[in-house]
């Protein structure tokens, strides 16, 4: 299932969890539906005019309680494991403030530089400090499989590891009023050196970079 370009190993982790759950689900689904269709065919009243009442079978019922329990606990565990990656902030992470307002995003770096497009260096974890200036928004990076609501007067963390150069979409997914659907911007992953010179320069002009064959999503 590779519908989206992988932007970082977290996306890989999420997709692995997804694949695990979907495969388990497909197996269960096939068993249930196939058995049902088989029974409906085999025990049709024309073939089997006289039914047999079976009120229950305790070992069988225990069996199909225990197996799904084990399965779902495994699902819970892998999901929790992968989730921690974006919630635990590594020490070397670069903080970036993310401001959401009706209906746009803006970003502020630690040296005070502000920007409407999120420029980040490749290969360094980014600690997004997400907040809202009015109602609740959500900061969603589809290619990174990551999302966090922006709350007014509160700061929430989300860690992003940009591993590839490229341009990625940033959208709002918490309904926030009239132009909710138009509230979007880009996240651009730059080579380390380009980013460093851009962040130090006082100009607000867009950094000139050749992104080459990098993935362009959206």
């Amino acid at each position: 299932m590779r519908l989206l370009p992988y932007a970082l190993n977290h996306a890989q982790a999420v997709d692995d969890v997804m694949r695990f759950i979907v495969i388990c689900s497909l197996i269960l689904f096939t068993i249930v539906v196939a058995t049902m269709v088989f029974f409906v065919f085999k025990y049709n009243h024309k073939r089997n005019p006289r039914a047999t009442s079976i009120p229950g079978n305790v070992p069988l019922e225990i069996f199909w309680t225990v197996i799904p329990t084990v399965l779902v606990l495994a699902m819970f565990y892998v999901g929790w494991e992968a989730y921690l990656q974006i919630r635990i902030v590594p020490k070397n992470a670069m903080p970036v403030k993310v401001f959401a307002r009706q209906w746009s995003f803006s970003f502020e770096y630690m040296n005070g530089k502000r920007c409407d497009t999120l420029y980040v260096p490749k290969g360094r974890p980014i600690d997004c400090l997400i907040t809202s200036l009015d109602v609740i928004h959500s900061f969603y990076l589809p290619a990174f499989r990551e999302k966090q609501d922006a709350l007014p007067d509160r700061i929430r963390h989300m860690v992003v590891y940009p591993e590839h150069l490229g341009v990625f979409d940033v959208v709002c997914t918490q309904y926030c009023g009239l132009d909710h659907s138009l509230m979007k911007t880009k996240m651009i992953v730059l080579p380390d050196t380009t980013f460093d010179s851009w962040i130090k320069s006082s100009s607000t002009a867009e950094p000139k970079v050749a992104l080459g064959d990098s993935t362009i999503y959206f």
Binding site: V22, L28, G79, Y83, I86
Partner: peptide, 26 residues
Amino acid sequence: MVLFSIGGLSGLVLGSLATDVHLTAT
């Protein structure tokens, strides 16, 4: 049985934290 199973099983994807972060509100 078919539709409810699909709905219920897709709920497992949403109950799992990592995948829910990606899929919620979509």
